[in-house]
């Protein structure tokens, strides 16, 4: 009805209906895609054991290819509830200096040759994506022979990253439905099912993925606890000030209201 070559309209009632429809539709673009459901997750920043486990996997597995340029190794002990010595003994710095940022040892040029695009920085990704998205992403690689890496991902269609979890999680196959991709009908993977058995059970792997997400979330939101601690005090301070200054204002202005024309002589 609203396309360019539609026949001339003759019926005003239809036209009116179309007007209203168009008005509603206007704001809501037309580039819809079927979105796979995200797996729910709650991140507990107090669960230091989980954060430590996540840090271990992140620093030794993910950082093979990705960097976390927003994060210095030296900032991790506090996040993980470790001393510096404990941190260096258990997780370590991949041979970097303690105060260095977490950078991958893999040269970017090599990565581009290997997976065509340089892997994005994980601080950037974790700041931009929700924990649920990250969790779903990590657990939703599936076999797709049409891809150069042999795998695809439900929340990141045509992902360039290979399935580095295959040995732990096993391979997975997609759960496909008929849906939309960028507005056109297409087969869309909205979930995964196990295909082969890995070294971990499903529960074990999911827990590992959640730990990694918790760690990424923690380093991507470094001041969340400070905010939560400080916020109420600052807000309380200004709330109290609002009350006080309101009373002060009322006190001064009583004169303005009551003694109409005498008040201005004050201070002369």
């Amino acid at each position: 009805m609203t396309q360019k070559n539609s026949p001339r309209r003759h019926r005003p009632v239809l036209a009116l209906a179309a007007v209203l429809l168009a008005a509603c539709g206007a704001a809501w673009g037309s580039v819809a895609s079927t979105v796979p459901p995200l797996r729910p997750i709650t991140v507990n920043l107090q669960d230091k054991a989980a954060l430590r486990n996540g840090a271990l996997y992140t620093v030794h597995m993910c950082v093979a290819c990705h960097s976390l340029q927003g994060v210095r190794y030296s900032s991790l002990p506090k996040v993980l509830g470790l001393s510096r010595a404990q941190f260096l003994a258990t997780i370590g710095t991949n041979g970097h200096h303690y105060h260095d940022t977490i950078t991958s040892n893999m040269p970017a040029a090599m990565m581009e040759a290997y997976v065509k695009i340089a892997p994005p920085d994980l601080t950037v990704i974790a700041q931009r994506r929700s924990a649920a998205w990250l969790y779903t992403y990590l657990t939703s690689f599936y076999v797709d022979p049409s891809r150069p890496t042999g795998v695809n991902n439900t929340v990141r269609y045509n992902v360039a990253m290979p399935d580095v979890f295959a040995s732990m999680q096993g391979l997975q196959k997609p759960v496909v439905v008929q849906g939309l991709r960028f507005g056109s009908p297409a087969k869309v993977a909205i979930g995964v099912e196990p295909l082969t058995q890995g070294s971990m059970t499903k529960a074990q792997f999911d827990q590992t993925a959640r730990d990694i997400v918790a760690f990424l979330y923690a380093v991507a939101h470094p001041h969340q606890q400070e905010r939560a601690r400080l916020g109420p005090w600052i807000l309380g301070l200004f709330l109290a000030l609002s009350v006080l200054t309101y009373l002060l204002y009322k006190l001064y202005w009583r004169r303005v209201i009551t003694s109409e024309e005498r008040w201005w002589r004050v201070g002369r």
């Binding site: 807000l235 609002s242 202005w253």
Partner: peptide
């Protein structure tokens, strides 16, 4: 002092809203 006290009240209320955004 009439509008200075009144504006002070405005500033206090403004900061409540402002810092709510800044912190949360």
């Amino acid at each position: 002092p009439y509008y200075t006290v009144k504006d002070l009240f405005g500033v206090s209320v403004f900061f409540v809203v402002f810092f709510w955004f800044v912190f949360y």
